[in-house]
Design a protein around this nucleic acid. Structure first.
Lengths: 211, 211
DNA sequence: GTCTATATTTCGATAGAC
DNA sequence: GTCTATCGAAATATAGAC
């Protein structure tokens, strides 16, 4: 009465491996968000994952590879939020989409912390997340820039609206609010403050008189 | 024909000590600005100072003490720029003062880098610069908040101007522009972008119709 | 005041057993 | 796939000579 060694045996091992890997990425995300990349040790990630240091490094050849996996997962979760919609928001509607993004970030302090820490660390070109951070900013600038330009063409914005400045300051507001929000959790609403910024932009650059 | 051992001998030693200390603070400022506090080793600061590691630690009992000296010097250089004027800028004039501050920062990438790195690192309460960063933000919020409230009282701003939001978003713009400026040096003018923000604020909240 | 030498951790990564 | 053991490098800090 022997049970046949099921395919599940092989399968279960694989699943466990996948689970360990996913757990490790989640643990690394949390710790990188709290202490940054340099401030987090592989051993700490391993401990939180429930593996030994070597056990963790079996899934990722190096600490930098672990970071790459974290960023990949971050992109996977966020990738389609702005650029992924089939009908891309255009004109002023782009700012409504951004408000929704900010509201969503307000429920994800870990992801916000991860970005703020890495963005500051990765200013240095030699940082393993440098290219990723630059691509992130380039992507947002392109998306929002095109949206505003379309708004100008459609007559939603004044014809003399300075597209690049609107884009730069809007991105700056989002980043700066995240810093303040992380430093004083609960003492400000990122979404409300961002809407105040959009309100000022509309007053200045909308083609219709709003105030 | 012996030269009397002059008081200068004692004095010269002291001066040299003071100079080494000052050099070390300058070196630490540069390196902290480039790689942050955690990413900079005491040995690297010592090498740039022209001292051995132990020679440096003779002046500062610990790495944290070195950071404290860096922050103290930073405050000494910047302390009087905003709050130090005898007649504090009030109302919209406060934003002109901020524009001047941003323009000044545009010539001091090291100081900007230092702040951006430390602000992100020191979100964590256990970071040795945590209290300093919180005080920095509290100070700016108080100063700008009072200026805007005075502007409201004087009738320069609309009576329904949301003071706290104006303060928060203005601080956010400054911080966010610094991040972008450090990441892409030369590709944006912090002063121009900040003025665009102030322009939008005036359009929205000035008591006189400006646009 | 500055140095050499060293103590003590901690880190990232590798080797090899199971 | 995971572990123990370990290596080599780098970090902070201290001791003691000059």
């Amino acid at each position: 009465m022997s049970f046949p060694p099921p395919h599940r045996a092989r399968s279960r091992v694989d699943v466990s491996g996948e689970e360990s890997r996913a757990k490790a990425v989640a643990a690394a995300t949390e710790l990188f968000a709290l202490a940054g990349y340099k401030g987090t040790s592989v051993a700490a990630v391993a401990a939180r994952t429930g593996l030994s240091q070597s056990g963790l490094l079996h899934h990722f050849p190096s600490k930098a590879a672990l970071l790459a996996a974290v960023l990949e997962e971050r992109d996977r979760q966020d990738g389609a939020f702005l650029t992924g919609s089939t009908s891309p928001p255009l004109g002023w509607a782009a700012f409504d989409a951004l408000t929704a993004l900010v509201a969503r970030n307000s429920t994800r302090p870990r992801m916000v912390g991860l970005f703020v820490r890495l963005a500051a660390e990765a200013i240095e070109p030699s940082h393993p997340a440098h290219a990723w951070v630059q691509q992130h900013y380039a992507g947002i600038r392109t998306w929002l820039g095109e949206a505003v330009r379309t708004g100008v063409d459609r007559g939603e914005f004044r014809q003399d609206a300075p597209v690049e400045s609107i884009v730069r300051t809007t991105v700056a507001v989002i980043d700066g609010l995240q810093q303040q929000w992380l430093l004083q959790p609960g003492e400000l609403s990122m979404a409300s403050e961002f809407e105040a910024h959009v309100s000022a932009l509309r007053a200045r650059w909308s083609s219709v008189e709003v105030r």
